[in-house]
């Protein structure tokens, strides 16, 4: 028996919107720790890892570990039927081949049940090692989204370079080139507007912009984004989900041929 009640149901709606472009089908795993998902895109270039900790739910009952295969576009169709202020409850019985999403309006005058068929998904679970990153950049998520969008109108790839000067996002295409440098800036009114660069050593990596743009669908989940870079690892683009957990996107770099 599984029953997860999330008062801030809009969080779940935003989570689905953040990942459904990248991943078609995925297993949602429920355990005492929380509600999680790990999945790669079809070409195995990017990986998404989601965690919503059990403590973040108003009610969290998960009698035994359960993995539920879902088509994310179908989940999204269901969740789009929930109001932004609705309380969302996810329910499933042991051994059942369906999951139920229950939506309650804030004043309890409307209650809806949407039952969705589950599917069997063969998915590989990858071990993600703890790593020391050469550079970690924290910046406003809207600024990062803007940079990715702007650069993708010029080129297909972005070179992200971190030096003492700051973080530089560069691209090149048929019509020309573009470089955007963000310097560390801690003197802002609100901490979420700061750009903070922790650099152990300079690093420069190249990535496909298409994927970066897809990651920025998570922007509504967090005011800030953290980008962790090391020369021998996929970049991690992390959006923290307040009080609950995170969405982390891993993107494999382009390498010299």
């Amino acid at each position: 028996m599984l029953e997860l009640r999330l008062v801030q149901g809009s969080l779940l709606k935003k989570v689905l919107e953040a990942i459904r472009e990248l991943v078609t089908d995925a297993n949602f795993d429920c355990s005492a720790t929380g509600f999680s998902l790990q999945a790669m895109d079809s070409s195995h270039v990017a990986l998404v890892a989601l965690l919503l900790r059990s403590e973040g739910f108003e009610h969290y009952r998960c009698d035994r570990n359960l993995s539920m295969g879902m088509n994310l576009n179908n989940v999204s169709k269901m969740l789009r039927c929930a109001g932004n202020n609705d309380i969302i409850t996810v329910k499933a019985d042991d051994g059942s081949d369906t999951v139920t999403f229950m939506f309650e309006s804030p004043n309890q005058d409307k209650i809806a049940d949407f039952e969705m068929k589950l599917m069997d998904i063969d998915s590989e679970h990858l071990g993600i090692p703890d790593a020391e990153y050469q550079a970690i950049v924290r910046m406003p998520s809207s600024e990062f989204a803007r940079i990715c969008k702007d650069l993708s109108s010029i080129g297909d790839t972005v070179i992200i370079s971190v030096t003492k000067e700051g973080v530089k996002f560069s691209t090149a295409g048929d019509i020309g080139t573009a470089n955007i440098v963000c310097r560390q800036n801690k003197t802002v009114d609100k901490p979420e507007e700061a750009t903070i660069i922790e650099m152990q050593e300079p690093v420069s990596l190249t990535f496909a912009l298409r994927y970066m743009n897809s990651f920025t669908k998570a922007t509504p989940l967090s005011e800030t984004v953290t980008i962790s870079l090391s020369s021998d690892l996929p970049v991690v683009v992390e959006y923290k989900i307040a009080e609950m957990g995170y969405i982390r996107f891993y993107l494999a770099p382009k390498i010299e041929e």
Binding site: H44, V45, E124, G127, A208, L233
Partner: peptide
């Protein structure tokens, strides 16, 4: 722009 690597080049199946 270089050759695109994949996640499985870096992370192992568990």
């Amino acid at each position: 722009g270089g050759k695109q690597s994949t996640i499985t080049n870096f992370f192992r199946k568990v």
